[in-house]
Design a protein around this nucleic acid. Structure first.
Length: 490
RNA sequence: CGGGGCGUGGCCCAGCCCGGUUAAGGCGCCUGGUUUGGGACCAGGAGAUCGCAGGUUCGAAUCCUGCCGCCCCGACCA
């Protein structure tokens, strides 16, 4: 029977869950707030990782790995940082279990209490900076450009598959520099890497900008972000890059000898993206028939489905399909031939649509006769017939077209749903209509809070790529140096 | 932490109010056959300590008490 996905208009949130589960990306685990990323979902994450990892290497970074467990005392060293994370840390207090003497199974051994409790990392700044102190002696050791792929745990009250889970996978870059300027440049450089990735691979347009003070990372002097707009109109922070100043260097006493022989504190950055990008990907392109994946990240770019009656025809058509499969594979296309005889073609069509495979190539007896095939695009759900001559070239071109079309569709949607307003009434109406809203703001946290309590919308960022002209605050009427981006957010 | 929902073969779930054969159905799985251009059909088959622990009763999936777990909606956050 058909797997029926809830439509977006009926219940957006259910639609999202249906896609994640039915497209085989992930499922809830038995542990509250934690998910199992299934092979198909993980394959997409691996694509993301591969591309990003390459970009990190190209910008001079190397990977390393730091411990999952962090001594509790490290957290107290940077005041703002503790403040930000204390509320959501899982704590390890014991190191041994024992059989319950009363027969109740296994219990924590009360004699195995840790002298110093350990925190499961919610992020690794503290342990990394504690390590960097030992690594950095001289200006010759700088810049230190390290990235780590890891899991982290943040004890959130409410979770959603990929968007916010108790444990998630991510990458965290941590760099140390001799000068403020260099560190700031690094912060911007990595934000550009993220923006490139979002647009170039995920086909997801993003707005780059600075966070306001209240939305800043705990311990940062400046947080840059990319914000994307989901189909329900909510903003999703897809990546962040932080300029940490000398806060962590000071907290962990990381100094270097300058050329002139002095001792100075190093300048720091950190930046990260997480499996949350999976959620962003789903909510950017997918439709009521299921997942839609951009070719560049799709584990399978093309699925070949043979159509036949009887064993003889099957043999003939499947062997033709194998030929095409190897042609496509030789052209560097990720292709899967599904010759499973126990599933009918109609079942396969539906299945691969649900799973977001960008292109389906079907060959039946009529095609074989004509030397053609049927190509069906997942994004537009349109079909065309192509000659089997130069099929790899056709397919390559079509995949590129799909990739570009997904981006431009998303760009158009973003543009059409971003509005500029000048009055409070317009502002409220626009937010209610789930728009991205460019409006003047007087720059105070007080007004920011006030607006967000009133409308549920927050300042997503102070966008870079926009004209900076003064005006008056949409809420208070006080002078405003520039417009900022408001939206409801995930 | 508040409000709601749910827990029954691998999955979706009926049954519970009003206790009483062998716990129903669909999907999936296995065997055989017919099929195959948009989620096929027929026949046969396997698979369940009804979330856990007590209690009431001749008898509990069903009633009572306690516990556990998950999901959804809100307050906090990537």
């Amino acid at each position: 029977m058909a797997k029926k996905i809830t439509s977006r208009s009926e219940d957006y949130s259910k639609w999202y869950n249906d896609i994640v589960v039915d497209a085989d990306l992930a499922q809830h685990s038995d542990v509250k707030g934690c998910m199992v990323i299934k092979p198909y979902g993980y394959a997409i994450w691996e694509r993301m990782k591969d591309v990003l990892d390459k970009k990190f290497k190209e910008t001079g970074h190397m990977n390393a790995y730091f411990p999952l467990l962090i001594p509790k005392s490290y957290f107290s060293k940077e005041a703002a940082h503790v403040e930000g994370f204390a509320k959501e840390c899982a704590v390890v207090t014991h190191y041994r279990l024992m059989n319950d003497p009363n027969g109740g199974g296994v219990i924590v051994d009360p004699d195995a209490k840790l002298e110093e409790e350990l925190i499961i990392r919610p992020t690794s700044e503290t342990i990394i900076w504690n390590t960097y102190r030992k690594w950095i002696q001289s200006y010759r050791d700088l810049p230190l450009l390290i990235n780590q792929w890891a899991n982290v745990v943040r004890w959130e009250m409410r979770t959603r598959l990929f968007l916010r889970t108790t444990e998630f996978l991510w990458q965290e870059g941590h760099t140390a520099h001799a000068t403020k300027t260099e560190a700031q440049e690094e912060t911007s450089r990595m934000l550009e890497v993220y923006a490139d990735f979002a647009e170039g691979w995920m086909a997801m347009p993003v707005i780059k900008g600075n966070k306001t003070e209240s939305e800043r990372f705990a311990g940062a002097l400046d947080t840059l972000c990319i914000e994307a707009r989901m189909q329900d109109g909510k903003a999703l922070q897809a990546g962040t890059s932080h300029f940490l100043g000398q806060n962590f260097a000071r907290a962990f006493d990381v100094k270097f000898a300058t050329k002139e022989g002095g001792q100075e504190l190093v300048w720091a950055t950190s930046w990260g993206v997480s499996t949350r990008l999976m959620g962003a990907l789903v909510m950017t392109h997918s439709d009521d028939a299921g997942l839609v994946l951009p070719p560049k990240l799709a584990p399978i770019e093309v699925v070949i489905v043979p159509i036949y009656k009887g064993q003889d025809q099957m043999d003939e058509i499947v062997s033709k399909c194998r030929e095409i499969e190897s042609q496509l594979r030789d052209a560097g296309i990720r292709v899967k031939l599904d010759a499973d005889d126990s599933k009918r073609s109609g079942w396969k069509f539906a299945e691969y649509e649900l799973k977001g495979v960008p292109l389906r190539l079907a060959i039946g007896p009529r095609d074989l006769e004509k030397g053609s095939c049927e190509l069906a695009r997942r994004d537009t759900r349109t079909k065309s017939f192509e000659s089997l001559e130069n099929i790899a070239t056709h397919v390559r071109t079509l995949l590129d077209t799909i990739q570009n079309d997904l981006l431009s569709t998303a760009q158009t949607r973003l543009k059409e749903n971003t509005v500029t307003v000048d009055t409070w009434a317009e502002f409220k109406a626009a937010i209610k209509a789930e728009k991205f809203v460019m409006a003047h703001w007087d720059g105070t946290s007080k007004t920011e809070d006030w607006i967000s309590q009133d409308t549920k919308a927050s300042i997503r960022c102070l966008p870079f790529d926009t004209e900076i002209t003064p005006g008056i605050c949409v809420k208070t009427g006080n002078p405003s140096p520039r417009r900022v981006l408001f939206a409801k957010a995930y």
